[in-house]
Amino acid sequence: MRIEILKQLNEAKRARRAAILVTDLATGEDRLALEGEALDGVSTDALNKAFLSGKSGLVEEGGKSFFLNVHVPPPRIVVIGAVHISQALAAMAPVAGFDLEIIDPRTAFATPERFAGVKLTADWPEDVLKESPLDAFTALVAVTHDPKIDDYPLVSALKTGCFYIGALGSRKTHAKRVERLKEAGCTDAQIARISAPIGLDIGASTPGEIAVAILGDIIQALRKRAIGAGA
C-alpha cells in the first residue's frame, strides 16, 4: 500500500466521508474511491453496493480480483427536542448502531435525570451546531414542534445534505413550516426531502412506537440513499 493512499484514506475518515480502498490482489496496486466517484476497472454498481451495505469483500471484474475495503463514517442522529419520543429513540439508536445526541435549549426538558447516559446539550441548536456541524452521515430529527427551536437546524440540515431529515407535526403544522422554510431560502426540492409526518407509516401511536417508526425511516434513508446524486 502506498503511503499517499493511506494518508488520503485517513483524511477521508477524519472528514467523515465514505471511501473504499480498492486493492488489485494480483498486483497489489491500491486506489481510493470516494462515494459518488467512478474508478477505472471497477463497476460503479459494485462500488455503490459496497457503499450502501457498508460491507467489505472481494469482487471479480474483467478477470481481475479486487478487494474492496469499505470505510463508512459511523452514522449519527441529532435530535432537536428532549421530549418523550427522544427518550425512546435514545434507548433504541445505539442498538441499531447509531450515535445519538439531543439538543434542546429548554432546561425543563433537557434534564440529565430524564436522559441518563445520553449526550444531551441544553442550548440553542444554532450554538451547538456551530461546534459540531451536521454532515452527510448525520440524520436530523426535529421534534420540539417549536419553530424557534426546530427551524434553524432544519434549514441547516437541508443545506448540508443530511442523509435523513425528519420533522414532527401534523400536515397543517408542516404546511406552515414549508412556508417558513421557503422564506428562509430553501428550494422545493430541498423541502421535499423532509420526512413529515415523521417516520415510516406504520400507524405508530405511542412515543415508543413513533421512535421505532423514525428509526426505521432513518435506516431506510441510509441504506437506500442515492449515491452520486450529490448532497
Binding site: 485517513n10 475518515k13 477524519r14 475495503n69 463508512v72
Partner: peptide
C-alpha cells in the same frame, strides 16, 4: 464496515509509524 475510530485505529497508527 470500519467505523471511524479514535486513536486506536490501525490505519491511523500505520500512518503515524510511517511518519
Amino acid at each position: 464496515m470500519n467505523d471511524i475510530a479514535g486513536f486506536d485505529d490501525p490505519l491511523l497508527i500505520a500512518e503515524g509509524w510511517k511518519n
